[in-house]
Amino acid sequence: DCQPVAHGTVTHETQAASKHSNSPVLESNIFISDITDDSGTHRWVSGHITEVHDPLRSVSVLEPGGPGGCAHNHRELVEVTAKTRKCLVAQNGGYFDTHTGQCLGNIISDGKLVRNSGGIQNAQFGIRKDGTLVFGYLSEDDILDQENPFVQLISGVVWLLRKGEIYINESIQAECDKTQETGNFRHFVDVISARTAVGHDKEGKLILFHVDGQTDVRGMNLWQVAKFLKDQNVMNAINLDGGGSATYVLNGSLASYPSDHCNPSKWRCPRAISTVLCIHERLCQPEDCSGHGRCVEGQCVCQHGWSTPGCANLTCQAECGEHGICTENGCVCDAGWMGLYCSQVCTAGLYGDGCNQTCTCANGGSCDPVHGRCTCPAGFHGDSCEQECPIGFYGLNCKQLCQCQDMCPCDAATGSCNTTYQGERNISLHRAGHCLATQMWREWRQEEEAQAPRPYLSEQSWLVVCSILATSLLASLTGNLIQTCRKCKARRQRADYSYLPLGEINGATERGEMKSGKVLFQ
C-alpha cells in the first residue's frame, strides 16, 4: 500500500533476458569517474560495470563457500566462493548478519530454495526458469511459484531504478513501514560508501555495478549510484550489500579496493561475506549434457549417436521404427528385419538376426524371416517340407484325412480321390487293382439301383411289420394258455355237490326213489 497508485498492484518489473549465444559471456568495464555531490564537491570514484549477455545460462547466486553455506551461517571470501563455480566475475550479493553470519532475505540458488523470508518487502532480483529477469518487490506466492519458478533469487535493499527512473523515494516508503523511523534508513541511502548493485538494460542484458569506497569518506550514495546507472541506460536496478562487503573478483582475483582494514590495520582486506553473485561460463541444458556430451560455451557437444541440444536422445530414436532399437551405433534390427532403419524384411531365403541365416525349406516352402520356420505347401510336411504327406492324408500340414472309398489314394495337395493307379503315389499295383474293381462294381450297383423301381416299403419296414405280427401271435397264445390253466385250477377247488330229487331220468318211475346223481355247476 506504500506503492505509488500509478503502478497499481504491480510491484515488480520483468524483462526477458537477452540470449546472445554468440557473444562473450560478459564484458567487464572499469570506470573512474568524477562525481559531484549536492554541495558541489568533486570526488573521483572507481569501480566496475559488467555486462552479461546471456544471464539465464551464465548467472548464479552462490551460497557462501558452496551449497549449504547459508544453513551453516557460513561466511567466506568472494574469491573462495567464486572458485567453487569457476566464476569469471563474482561480486558480493545479499545482506547477512555480521554477528552470526546468517544469510538474510530470499535466496534461490540454481533452482534450489535456500531461504524464504516470507514475502519480506525488500528489493529483489531474480531470474525465472524461462529467462525472465525480475526486479522489485515480491510476495511469498511469487517466490514459491511453481509454474515458472525462480532459478536465481537474491534480496537487496532499495529499488534504485524502475523503468529507467530513479525509484529511491518510493523505495523508502515501501521498505519502511513508519516514516518517523526512516532516519537511519535515509542515512543509509544518503551516505557515500562502497556500493554494489544489479540491474538490466533495454536488451535484457544483466548489469553488475560495483564502486569502491569507504563509508562517509569515499564512494557514492544511492542517489549517485541510481543516476550513474540511469546514465548507463539501465532500466531497473536494486542495491545490494555495500560498505566493507563490496567486493569485485575478476577471473579469481580480487579486483576492487576493500574498505575494511586487516589486522593489523596497515593493509586493506576483503571481507568474508555471505552470498555471491557469480558470472560463469554458460551452462548447458542440462548442465551435464545428459552424460553424453561436453558443455562448450553453453552448447552441448554430443557424443556420436546422441542428438543435440541436450544429448538426451539418440539420433536414430525416431527412425528405427517398430522393428529396431536405437543405439549409439545406429539401429539394431530385430530378427527378420534389415536396413538402415530396420524397415525391410529379410530377403527371401534368409532369416534371423541380421538376416544372416539361410532358410532350409524344400519343395517351395516359404521361410519365416524371424525364426526360419518353414511353411510347407499343401501335400508336404516336415521341418524343411522335405516329406510328402503320408497315404490317407492331404492338404496343408497333411492334417486332412482322405475321404476316398476302398482305400483309394487321394491327391496329397487337393485331396481328390484317384481311382486309377498313380505311379508317383507309390501304391502297389495289386492294391490299385482292387480299388479299381471295387469301384467299378459299386458304380454298376448304383446304376442298377437307380434303374430299378423303388418298392413301396423298404426291407426294414417289412422286417418291423413281421416282428410286430409275430410278437402279437406269441402274446395271444400265451394268454390262452394262462386262461386254460386257471379254469383247471378252479374246477379242482369246487369239489362239493348237491343232490336234487329228480323225477325221472331217462324214463324212471314217478315215486321213484332217490338216486344219486351229479350236476355240474359252473
Partner: peptide
C-alpha cells in the same frame, strides 16, 4: 589460511541498525 588476512569488518553499512534508533520492522506481504 595464514595467507588470508581477515577483514576487521570495520566498515559496516547496514540499512537497519539498532544502534541508530528504534528497532525497525520489515514489511511482510503474503
Amino acid at each position: 589460511c595464514k595467507d588470508i588476512r581477515h577483514s576487521s569488518d570495520d566498515d559496516l553499512l547496514l540499512p537497519y541498525t539498532k544502534s541508530h534508533g528504534p528497532s525497525h520492522s520489515h514489511r511482510y506481504v503474503r
